[in-house]
Design a protein around this nucleic acid. Structure first.
Lengths: 320, 320
DNA sequence: CTAGACTGTTCATAATTTTGAACAATCGAG
DNA sequence: CTCGATTGTTCAAAATTATGAACAGTCTAG
């Protein structure tokens, strides 16, 4: 079995895998975009070359012989692998190109990602972007996303996460609300305050906080909360806070952007919220042997754009 | 990237792996048995189809671009795998066929394998056999053997062993020798007997024996031995024993065959030799994803032929 | 039981690919 | 520096392969 022999058989072997899938020469011809007479002829040639019957034919249907099934079993994966390689090589052509579907939190997308998109697209003219803003946890593979920007504490299996920037949650209220209802001095007091809750699948109606007391000692408190408003959009909650409706736990990128930012005051600043929004923003993507260049460009762009984080209210407040 | 696209590229991708190996379009053409103009043209077509330069050409030599190298790296293994599959499928055609190279111990080969070969070859007319008789441990892969018949206690890595039949070692002497020098009653006495040694790489000049004393208790003795003759051929040793030269430790298939078998007497029959020749005869072959049918036929044939083993001196003695 | 749709196969024709000689560019030995 | 050998490329002719309409066998809906 020399190299010249195998080379001639390759397209026919590949065709055989399609035949095995479709179990029909006609369908195979349609899928490969060739004449069905070619399928018939090439299959015959292949069987002749290997000197083994591969397909048992009735006039109306076909079945693989054991030899044919074995052959398909061994080669199918290889053809898929080769196809991967070709896709990877194509991606290296010229400038990064292709469609990148990104899922991102609503507030982050509107306030911080959208403004940086023109710079990205003008730098890479062949990249097309599809931005899906949603605060739910999407299934990347199932819904066909290349990238999700999330506050994720844990990364789903067979996915890869890249840290973009630090991003914490902050507890907020308006000066008016605090004047009217008093300023909480301990998380436990939140139980009798009006708390505006972010709705998320599986999120409980309680907030947890942490405070470092000694060198390494930490204090942890969990408090049940309730209030007059729940919403799954952090900007809605922020405006409600600004309007004096109550206290909310919001991601910093929502808190310090928008026109109402100056109406917000941090509450219990020495207590760090735990386990609600994570401590950093991550770009999450389904694992693949090689990252498409376009996707990598988007990730890099976001990392640069968001590098400074959202931690400094002064800066953001003055810039809005 | 649809199925039809990949199918058309397959021969060209395979050609690219050959180009990567030879680093020459001319050599590639020669190895694939096609015109070098075809190589040049198809390479150009492939680059056009992928829209990536794959090979950097000087008028006199070529180098792969990073994209080309990456593509080859990803696809080469797949093509090799496909080739394996084709070889496997071809093997399923018609009757088992092909050359089987077998290495076997000299005595076993002459006395027990050779007589059964005609039956094998007449049953499978398309199988060709090459029998290499040698008592050394051959390197199967390096020397191109498909099969080795050995007393092996341990099987080399990435090899597979199939047990053929039981086969032990026996300690032998002639009646004359025993009459002249006395019959040993304990292995320790062997140290002052004339012991005929089998020469093998790394074999020490000592014999070990084991005896079951109680229910589960075993006694073990190792004794240094020496004598007037060493040889790496067990039949030579057997004849020497028959001639009264001394005591030898021989595999049973050597002991109980040949015209001199009736001149031999077991010595210390209640002591079992340990770690010299193993307890069973094995067929050892290099691992491969699928056993060629011809090789499997030879193994099965040997197992049937040798099934009865060599343990019964009476039977063999009378048949020779 | 029958008509129609669909199966895989055949074969002359059309399209494509392969071929080999001619060619310019390059390397290496003397 | 020069000559001969060898590299990869080009292009019209030749060989190979694909095509699609016609065909016979088979299944299914009514």
């Amino acid at each position: 079995m020399s190299a010249r022999d195998i080379a001639a058989l390759l397209p026919d072997l590949h065709m055989l895998t399609v035949i095995a899938e479709t179990r029909s020469l006609t369908q195979t011809a349609r899928r490969l975009g060739i004449a069905k007479s070619s399928v018939s002829m090439r299959l015959k040639d292949l069987e002749q070359a290997l000197d083994v019957p591969l397909v048992r034919r009735t006039t109306r249907s076909i079945t693989l012989t054991p030899a044919g099934a074995q052959l398909v079993e061994q080669t199918r994966g290889s053809f898929a692998h080769i196809e991967q390689g070709v896709v990877g090589a194509k991606d290296l052509a010229g400038a990064p190109r292709g469609l990148v579907r990104v899922s991102a939190p609503v507030a982050l997308g509107r306030q911080h990602i959208a403004p940086t998109i023109p710079a990205l697209l003008s730098r890479y003219p062949d990249i097309r972007l599809e931005l899906d803003l949603s605060d739910r946890f999407v299934n990347l593979v199932q819904e066909g996303f290349d990238l999700a920007i999330r506050h994720a504490s844990r990364v789903p299996e067979s996915h890869i996460a890249v840290a973009l920037c630090a991003s914490a949650s902050v507890l907020l209220a308006s000066p008016q609300y605090l004047a009217r209802n008093g300023t909480p001095q301990h998380p436990a007091e939140l139980a009798r305050h009006a708390c505006l809750l972010y709705l998320r699948d599986g999120s409980t109606a309680s907030w947890s906080f942490e405070r470092t007391t000694g060198r390494k000692a930490t204090q942890r408190v969990s408090v049940p909360v309730s209030g007059p408003l729940r919403a799954n959009n952090s900007e809605v909650l922020r405006e409600a806070v600004a309007g004096g409706l109550g206290i909310a736990l919001l991601p910093d990128f929502t808190a310090w952007s928008g026109p109402s930012a100056h109406q917000l005051r941090p509450v219990l600043p020495e207590w760090k919220p735990v386990g609600f929004f994570g401590e950093r923003l991550q770009a999450i993507r389904p694992w693949s042997p090689r990252t498409p260049r376009a996707v990598q460009c988007v990730i890099d762009h976001l990392r640069k754009s968001l590098a400074e984080g959202f931690g400094d209210p002064q800066r953001l407040r003055s810039s809005v």
